[in-house]
């Protein structure tokens, strides 16, 4: 039971990291970024290549290669996030809501096909040099048996979330992003370059998704060009469950969906886990149409 909870929390932490990107963009633009799942997928491939390159350069120390790989993945996805915003969203500012939505889906297809054609249309092994020792190192704390990889996932997710919270609440960038989310016209009248800030929101969200991608890749050991689809959908459900536009809501929603999936898996079987997470979403939306924390506009980015 305890292990199920830890598994669920680890899974939920990943959903939460990706959900933060959906919720930030929604908080600022009032739109869903349908290419966000691809930022997660690109993060997987970027860290795989970074680890491969570091490995062939002779660097094998996990403590060194893993942080580098994660940073490379985050930076690369942030770049793609900025590109996505420029190409799929900025040009269509002021157009009907469905226009950027459609162009984002197009961007998603382009990115998936780009990876499929340039890397592989099948599965690609994720370098085991880092993940295998982490997955094999297990600790028993009382009745709980936990792997170093799970500790790493939970720990780094926690650090990233605290970091995001700090940026949003305490830094100039965060104050500016909140200003744009609360009143875009007024922020512009205060001299803010609103377009730049919207790009920043995409970049931050994409970087978080890439970190999540790296961790899932380590966990699963294989990566695919379409890995962002299902995960993106789950993370989107998590953002909506928690109240889209709300940062603590995205974290809460992610954790709840992760827990629901692992509890279902251990109680009835893995076949039912997708059903359970979306059933949970529907149930919550029936009772609270704006999500769990949806009415608190307060923490909207």
């Amino acid at each position: 039971m305890l292990e199920t909870l830890v598994n669920g929390l680890s899974r939920g932490a990943i959903y939460a990291l990706v959900a933060l990107g959906y919720t930030m963009v929604y908080g600022i633009l009032g739109m869903i970024n349908f290419a966000h799942g691809e930022m997660f997928m690109l993060g997987m491939f970027a860290s795989a290549f970074a680890l491969g390159a570091l490995g062939s350069a002779g660097l094998v120390s996990v403590g060194l290669t893993l942080p580098i790989a994660i940073l490379v993945a985050m930076a690369l996805s942030a770049g793609f996030g900025a590109m996505n915003e420029r190409m799929a969203y900025r040009k269509l500012r002021g157009a009907h809501l469905l226009a950027p939505l459609t162009s984002a889906i197009g961007m998603s297809i382009v990115l998936q096909n780009f990876v499929m054609l340039s890397v592989t249309k099948g599965k690609k092994d994720f370098p085991q040099s880092v993940s295998a020792p982490l997955a094999d190192t297990r600790w028993s704390i009382g009745p709980l048996n936990i792997s170093a990889l799970q500790v790493l996932i939970l720990g780094s997710t926690f650090v990233l979330m605290i970091g995001l919270w700090f940026v949003i609440q305490r830094t100039r960038l965060g104050i500016a992003l909140r200003a744009v989310a609360q009143d875009r016209t007024m922020a512009s009248l205060c001299g803010m370059k609103v377009d730049h800030l919207i790009t920043w929101a995409f970049m931050i969200g994409s970087a978080l998704a890439a970190a999540a991608g790296t961790m899932v890749a380590m966990y699963q050991g294989v990566i695919r060009f379409d890995a962002g689809y299902t995960l993106g959908l789950k993370a989107f459900a998590a953002a909506v469950l928690g109240g889209i536009g709300n940062i603590p809501g995205a974290v809460l929603g992610g954790l709840l969906i992760g827990l629901a999936e692992d509890l279902t898996t251990s109680a009835v079987g893995a076949d039912w886990k997708h059903t359970s997470s979306f059933a949970l979403l529907i149930l919550v939306l029936l009772l609270r149409p704006r999500g769990l924390l949806g009415e608190r506009v307060a923490d909207k980015v």
């Binding site: 609360q182 009143d183 909207k300």
Partner: peptide
């Protein structure tokens, strides 16, 4: 710079943060 007839502050920020938003442009 301008103000509005119907108040348009950033409601979910402190007074100081509201002024800082204006200040960032400089």
């Amino acid at each position: 710079s301008r103000s509005f007839q119907n108040i348009r502050l950033f409601p979910e920020m402190t007074s100081l943060q509201n002024v800082l938003v204006g200040r960032f442009s400089r």
